[in-house]
Design a binder for these strands. Sequence first.
RNA 1: GCUCGAGUGGUGGAAUUGGUAGACACGUUGGACUUAAAAUCCAAUGGACAGUUAUGUCCGUGCGGGUUCAAGUCCCGCCUCGAGUACCA
Length: 1014
Amino acid sequence: MKYHFNDIEAKWQKYWASNQTFKADNHSDKPKFYVLDMFPYPSGAGLHVGHPLGYIASDIYARYKRHKGFNVLHPMGYDSFGLPAEQYAIQTGQHPAKTTEANIKTYRRQMDQIGFSFDWSREVRTSNPDYYKHTQWIFTQLFESYYDKVDDKAQDIADLVKIFKSKGNKEVNAVCDEETPLFNAEQWDAFSIKEQQEILLNYRLTFLSDTEVNWCPVLGTVLANDEIVNGVSERGGHPVVRKKMKQWSMRITAYAQRLLDGLNTIDWPQPLKDSQTNWIGRSDGAMVSFEVKSEKLKAKSVIDVFTTRPDTIFGVSFMTLAPEHELVEKITTDEYKNAVEKYVQATAKRSERDRMADVKTISGQFTGAYAEHPFTKEQIPIWIGDYVLASYGTGAVMAVPCGDQRDYDFATHFNIPIPNIFKDIDISEQACEDKSAVMANSEFLDGLPAKKAIKRMIYEMEKLNIGTGKINYRLRDAVFSRQRYWGEPFPVYYKDGMPQMIDAKHLPILLPEIEKYLPTEDGKPPLGNAKTWYWDEKNNRVVSPPSGDLGDIYPLELNTMPGWAGSSWYFNRYMDSSNSNEFASKESLEYWESVDLYIGGSEHATGHLLYSRFWQKFLFDKGLVPVDEYAKKLINQGMILGTSAFVYRWDFESEDPQKSKKTIFVSKTKMEKIIEERKTIENSKKGISKNKISSSGTIEIPQPTTNNNWSHFTPIHADVSFVNASNELDVEAFKNWREEYKEAEFVTEPDGTFIVGREVEKMSKSKYNVVNPDDICHDYGADTLRMYEMFLGPLEQAKPWNTAGITGVHGFLKKMWRLFFIDEGLEKDPDYYKVDINDEKGYKWFASVKERFEVSDNEPTKENFKILHKTIKKVEEDIANFSFNTSVSTFMIAVNELTKQKCNNRAILEPLLILISSYAPHIAEELWEKLGHNTSISTAKFPVFEEKYLVESTKVYPISFNGKMRFTMELSLDLSKEQIEKDVLAHEKTQAQLAGRTPKKVIVVPGKIVNIVG
RNA sequence: GCUCGAGUGGUGGAAUUGGUAGACACGUUGGACUUAAAAUCCAAUGGACAGUUAUGUCCGUGCGGGUUCAAGUCCCGCCUCGAGUACCA
């Protein structure tokens, strides 16, 4: 019987679905295990072979854990809000929900085909109102919370109001905006409701504010920092400009330290942790105040600066403000007014990108104003310069040219003095950034190294009340508004310009229907086009605005939430995905607790993986989830790259216009030969006038016009589906691919084949190197696809896909299948026949081996057991290390060995099937059934490794001389070191190696190696 | 620039606490079975050299040093590639 993988796989996929084999129970005596994949955005292109890599790995793990007796939660869903569906809607008018639905269908079909053990009954979709209802609710919870620095957790904003009422905010230690005014209880009471609301917005964990945002005019929306790559939008590569807009933000900065600390408690890849650490960017230093004296300023003013090296303050010879700094206008003297304004305008014009790209040009302008050095009381000139960023620290620096390269360069450029404050260090060439340098010329700091000097300086500053120790973070609050349609609507309406939350019982606020998905004519977000988008406060529903007096009807928020809103908590939803009252019941949250294994791409390091940790910590603070880190272990799967195919177009000039019009493609080896020949010709300085290529007719090559410019080859992507395993192009298919290739000429190899060039690139439609898993499943089966993806290499590593190699894995599965069958000679194979009139019946039959299913119940041999238990041991180790590629090799070795041993014993093959069933579940189920089982193999007990089968009595010792292995020798493991040495030295080959010399030393490591020195 | 990761045959990749480098595959070559293909099976396959064969010798894990009886693995110094980040005070 042949291995009919297509039939077998369809059969078992149907079986698993109708029997709900992988449905996870929220009540079980078994220990729980939660295996999660990052859910996909369902894009229109469908899955390519790179996408399922992580899902296959997690599926193997999930299935393995079921065999090991765990109650496994292995869910899947869709991050179904997103830009592409909306862009498509703008172009075609098709509702994004429709596009998304269609894409999800494709995704689901493709995933089902690979045989994943997902519990689909728990599927989530972020664009589903049943789901985003809870996203909206979490948003309202963030709005109703502030961050208490004393308790170091989020608290109810209502508690804060109570404190304001009784004592004002002077004693409150909470995270809030820098500009929050101080007030006492009486003042608070005197504030209008609106004023009180405005103050509370400074404390809320999600808040409205005028923010400098990254505005992308082409996409018509703001972007978060992690959505910008190299100064342009991550999606589409459109330019991004800075713009001030009223936006919702998330006060993620309140959690900066806890997000850092939490990294120590989770088992995530170090590079990912590093990247989050860098993104949060903690720096320890001090805030220092400098008093400003300017003829223009009537009152004294103060410039605050942040520095990580307060100990270098005696080296300050100037200050620099960001051109955007609010004090610039106030302090600039009349004399410098024009020059400063000119400079400020010039920098404002330059885009952020230009400013970033151009790091080397030093520019700046003196303001005419001076600050007073807090210790020496000297006058320090105040400059502005675009190397100081408004968005970091206070937007102002105390410049220490001898200790900071940028300050040094600036000082050199503008001839500002460079006082030296380091002992025995020459700073004539560049600034000294060495922290071990000892201080000098610094009064009470003289002789101290940096670490001690910083401590001392902060102490002195705090004593004199001119500065204070401070920790600064690079992390910015996250902008949470998007000017898009296809996202979660905010549960927010505006009353007197102030945002009001809609009560939980009225959620979800459904996304309204609109006709046009573009911004409105007056530049409002797409929701501005909605006819029914007002809130009736009395009746608590969304309504159309009445004409005339609005009464209790208020406009709703026009922005929607960003993509990361829905993905920041979905892992909790899976625990209880059909719960309509709350995002998940307390009971289910406590049962499943957190993700035991999370698999996904490292590109989410500073996006999803940071935001979701933030939300989890917030939910934890509010007592809504039991743990404050939701994923104990995380693995980043590497990208599968494509192997692009290239044909080479021969471009040359010709006097004959007919010839130069002609498109000529040259086979790769041929091309290399031609290039080689040309080189030889050029080297010997001989010209040629003709180059005859016989296999494809004669092609005349024109006389070179110049030495270099006579002809060249242009690589052109060819679709990889036209190329076979030996890199031969299907020329006809290629010709039919494009109209302009129909008439092209092909210069082939002498044997008539046309060879393409290959190169590894990212898999993408535009490179025609995409391989569709559907095709692989059809040609080789899902089990082969699963095993081959694992076999390609280590899970975490990027690696190229090469369909040619898949035959190895496929052949292995066939070989394993044959272990269960007995060869009964040749038979007519009904699967392969074709009409042949010469045959007496009109058919010509093809012979194939007739095979009968049969396994033996006899006791296996010692050798059989040995190979089985070796395999059990290795596979368990491999799965524990996520080294799935090596376990595939192990299976191959096992099957090769068992085939050689002619083993068909049930006692060996049955456990072997369980081992392999996580990797190749369909074939395992089929053979399991043939073995007489009537339940799924998926919960069969994992075989137990027994050491006794591996115990050896002898060892083949490598005998090496001076570290070089020369021959092997089988010796009993019972031998003593001395006996081994004696036996080895007595061996004739040892004598031959020594050639009469006496060994200086003999190293014997019993069970390992013998090394003879001398 | 800074941080992190990686360099092993023609290719993808193996190699436990330092202990037989190249497992397992792909590809290539040769062979068997076939009228023929497909499928399947067998053998060879890091490089160089010597030998009729058996076999032997040398070189080999990015480069240069070092530690060790023994180094792909440990230490020091470089080079190259990849990822992240970027005037962060």
